[in-house]
């Protein structure tokens, strides 16, 4: 069992709070993604779990064992770094074999060979086993980096934006690959990213970080449909959620205390100008091929909505617009559910 439990974790760098009283339970076999912008404390959290940083306060336990003060080697985590942290003077084979040659795990040469070739197969790098690490392309290096983590079968895998420096196609390939590997091995995986697509496609659960604090935690669907705050709502969804001041468009059952209304495509019904709640005008139609973005002007505010690629709408046309169960937020950004009052 390799569940991870963080309790009240805090870490300060140069008087700046990087991680602030963070508590989190990651269950065994979960693909957990920490999502947040640069500087939200994602990487620090990961490094605290790996033991590369020591917390100022709080505790880390892995598999029920308190490892707050243990060395990285004792924690049995594998770490995939954002930069390709391969040993440049070694071949791909030796890079993959490196963690296995630890004296802590007396493996025979044959066992190591079997494991290395198996993992090389998994990350599709078998053909480059004899190449030097420096002769690989970025994608290949990161695949070796991931392979070096996999080869050990550790308690948990920690990955720090492993795909961020790769090109788009490779990223989507490796995304699927990682998800598949995690499902096949049933490993516990903690993944850090600022990319919402990575979070949405791979995670069993997502944790949203804001300034070192965990602001919401749940399945991708829960977080998308039921964000706890404006901050969380703007993390997920393309195009980004539209934020309108309350009262611009009548939203029906607007709870008292609402100051901002969050509007996504699925909250909008476009119709005939005469029979709808608001009159709007199509500004621009952005056709991206597989999808179409509609820029809609309502009472001097602009909404960006997703439309069917075959939509017949054209720029500068008047349309009617009504809302269907949008998200309501109080002035401090907190979510207010319909039929509920803002907390004071």
């Amino acid at each position: 069992m390799a569940d991870v439990r963080l309790k009240g974790l805090s870490k300060t760098f140069n008087k700046r709070l990087a991680v602030d009283d963070l508590s989190l339970d990651i269950r065994h076999g979960e693909f957990f993604v920490l999502l947040g912008p640069t500087g939200a404390g994602k990487t620090t959290t990961l490094r605290l779990i790996a033991g590369l940083e020591r917390p100022d306060k709080g505790s880390v336990s892995i598999g029920g064992r308190d490892v707050t003060h243990s060395e990285p080697a004792e924690r049995d985590c594998a770490f995939v770094f954002q930069q390709y942290s391969l040993y440049p003077h070694l071949t791909v084979y030796d890079n993959l074999a490196f963690p296995l040659k630890s004296p802590l795990r007396r493996l025979s040469k044959e066992d190591i060979d079997v494991r290395v070739r198996e993992v090389a197969e998994t990350v599709h790098i078998s053909h480059k086993l004899d190449s030097k690490a420096t002769q690989l392309s970025g994608g290949e290096m990161q695949r070796v980096g991931i392979g070096r983590a996999l080869v050990r079968r550790p308690n948990i895998y920690l990955m720090d934006e492993p795909l961020s420096s790769l090109d788009a196609r490779l990223r989507s390939d490796l995304r699927l690959e990682l998800k598949r590997i995690q499902q096949d091995t049933g490993a516990t995986l903690l993944y850090v990213t600022h990319d919402q697509i990575e979070a949405m496609t791979m995670a069993s659960r997502i944790g949203i970080l804001e300034n070192g604090r965990l602001v919401q935690c749940g399945t991708p669907r829960e977080i998308y449909e039921n964000p706890a705050s404006v901050y969380v709502a703007t993390r997920l969804g393309t195009p980004r959620i539209n934020l309108l001041p309350a009262g611009v468009i009548p939203a029906g059952s607007e709870p008292t205390g609402t100051s901002v209304i969050g509007v996504r495509t699925e909250h909008v019904v476009l119709g005939d100008p005469s029979s709808s709640a608001s009159k709007a005008r199509i500004g621009k139609v952005e056709r991206l091929g597989d999808q179409t973005f509609l820029h809609v002007d309502v009472e001097g505010h602009k909404l960006v909505l997703l439309a069917d690629p075959h939509v017949a709408l054209e720029a500068d046309r008047a349309v009617g617009l009504s809302l269907r169960a949008p998200l309501f937020f109080a002035a401090d950004g907190a979510r207010i559910h319909a039929g509920q009052e803002a907390r004071q």
Partner: peptide, 9 residues
């Protein structure tokens, strides 16, 4: 750091 996580002495 990688070597440390890889349990190299």
């Amino acid at each position: 750091e990688a070597a440390e996580v890889d349990r190299a002495s």
